[in-house]
């Protein structure tokens, strides 16, 4: 059990809270630190921003070999998530996809952030975001 690990990042993991560098505009996710990963400002001033739950695939793979904990095929993508208020830069995150197949994916595909179970801590489910092509695509 590692409660503290999941406790301290719960705002990022459950609410897509990100941190915008006030010096260069870089949007840091999920890191919440006092140094900017892009401009190197230290100490940097970060402002909290919420990320939108819809973004665009920048690149992807579909994995076929993984431990049993993860169902295959398991797509993985780098996704640009804009800020929820439409301001500033997007955050570039990488995440697992769910309920999405290879033929539904290409560079530029729109995906939704979906709140899902990633693993458990003891018996306790740890939930955070995966991505998926919008459900309406499945109709």
């Amino acid at each position: 059990m590692s409660g503290p690990r999941y406790h301290r990042t719960r705002a990022q993991d459950q609410r897509l809270l990100a941190f915008e560098c006030q010096s260069c505009g870089y949007v840091s996710f999920p890191d919440e630190r006092r140094t900017c990963k892009r401009c190197g400002d230290a100490p940097a001033t970060f402002e909290e921003v919420r990320l939108a739950e819809r973004g665009e695939v920048e690149t992807f793979v579909v994995q076929e070999y993984l431990p049993d904990d993860i169902e295959v095929p398991q797509p993985l993508a780098i996704v640009d998530l804009p800020q929820a208020d439409g301001e500033g830069e997007s955050a570039r995150v990488y995440g697992l996809l769910t309920e999405t197949e290879l033929d539904e994916l290409s560079v530029g595909t729109e995906v939704e952030a979906r709140f899902r179970e990633l693993f458990d801590d003891g018996e306790r489910p740890i939930n955070s975001f995966k991505f998926a092509v919008p459900r309406e695509v499945k109709r």
């Binding site: 793979v61 994995q63 070999y65 990633l118």
Partner: peptide
Amino acid sequence: ALERLWRGRGVTMPAFFGMRAT
């Protein structure tokens, strides 16, 4: 199978490099 959010869960080396190929 690493129990880390956003940092390696469900990701293998072929995936990291394969994303550059795509």
